[in-house]
Design a protein around this nucleic acid. Structure first.
Lengths: 238, 238
DNA sequence: AAACCCCTTTGATGCAGGTCATTTGCGACT
DNA sequence: AGTCGCAAATGACCTGCATCAAAGGGGTTT
């Protein structure tokens, strides 16, 4: 749980490198300032530290400032399901709005920092800032469409297609953050990838090996180099 | 596309049997009246008629008044993916908010009627009615959590578990509408069920037959009688 | 540096569900 | 009553991925 001390208080949304990703572009400067005032910046989280756990009271949504976060749920039988991977500039925690408590848990996959945006204050602010309200409607709608894309992926596509699609998704999101779209480090383990995509670790590993053999990728542990974007896109049925 | 003539103009949200499902409970009477004024009621749609198609401009969200609606998307290769089934009192079309156009299509599975709620007017209204804003945040969040449950179902559960879960979901939603939770008519075809759950028609059919043999269900075409709720719940992993 | 742990890779085998093909049943139209 | 058409059921076979088992790094601890 990010402590709401003025740690990193020098950081302002106005100056944050990620602000084009997590804030509505249409915001006026003084509006950014008002939003900035409600955002709480937590101390850095290290690997495996939770932002919130399943059953925690829902109080806020979060933006990734650095590092990477995964969300997951646990069903009655104790089986975990990874529901999303979040990279810097992306918002998570919106699953909790419908209920008073979080359905999912969120955990840092590596040393990470997140901004906490208290939801009740966000709601109040939205009332006087229509563009902010619209922005959050859009963010939630995007979450819905991306979940639906995952549903399609899981119910219609083979292991190779699923993994190609995930790699391209990470590639595209890296591009948005002005990082390389062809060389990057996967923040998550093979087990997380398999869990997220409905596959076993062994299958994930085999597909990576096959992709390497087919010259689609260079894989070195978590370091990925995409060598044949069109080839992957074809697999991903784009 | 529902025609916005004053067809069925006598219907008012205030009197609608479904209003406890699609409206926020906290709404004052005059607030219901203001919402009622922006809601457009379309003529009845018959089977296979579209509410909107993929690529249509996003203008509104919709509530099912009677009948049943399915939403689906079509990927680049022309493969359909059913993304949801919506029963009376339920809201659909929220996937379009993020973009200016609908990602999905929505089609009537039987003769149906829907209420159209123009989104821009809903946004305006939300600004003066905080409980309405909160209601729509919650609706979207619910859509997210239910999509995530489907993701878990698809990536972790067997054909039998998936179908048991779908039947119990429809059963529970019928109960909310004061209909029988044990005897009902499935509005969708076996093909739709299979498509939604990531299974082939044959598998769906076989599982229905097996459930019947195990005395879990009586199946007569689309008429379902659940004979062993606890048995199904156990399969569905509670 | 040895011991340990955890993540990943690779191989061998089995099965749930897909694919293909045929049959059955029912409603609509003539 | 007969024919067409479509949804659903059933059977035979096949395959992609899971499962089980084992072994190979790389990092951390002592």
């Amino acid at each position: 749980m990010p402590v709401s001390c003025p740690h990193n208080a020098e950081i302002n949304c106005r100056d944050c490198r990620m602000n084009t990703l997590c804030l509505p572009i249409a915001l006026e400067l003084d509006e950014v300032e008002r939003l900035n005032e409600i955002v709480q910046r937590g101390r850095p989280l290290h690997r495996d530290e939770h932002v919130y756990s399943s059953g925690n009271e829902f109080k806020a949504v979060y933006a990734v400032r650095s590092g990477s976060i995964k969300t997951y749920s646990v069903n009655d039988k104790g089986v975990e399901q990874v529901t999303g991977f979040y990279l810097p500039g992306e918002i998570f925690g919106m699953d909790g709005i419908a209920h008073t408590h979080h359905a999912n848990a969120a955990v840092a996959m590596e040393t990470s920092a997140v901004c906490e945006i208290p939801f009740s204050r966000l709601e109040d602010l939205s009332i006087t800032m229509p563009s902010l309200q619209r922005h959050f409607f859009k963010l939630m709608s995007k979450e819905i469409t991306s979940d639906q894309q995952l549903i399609t992926l899981l119910s219609k596509n083979s292991a190779e297609e699923r993994i190609a699609t995930l790699l391209l998704s990470i590639s595209a999101r890296n591009a948005k953050r002005n990082l390389s779209s062809v060389r990057f480090r996967l923040p998550m383990s093979r087990a997380d990838i398999g869990n997220y995509l409905g596959l076993t670790v062994e299958t994930v590993s085999r597909v990576f090996s096959r992709f390497q053999k087919q010259q689609l990728l260079n894989v070195d542990k978590k370091e990925i180099e995409i060598r044949d974007v069109p080839g992957l896109q074809e697999l991903s049925n784009s």
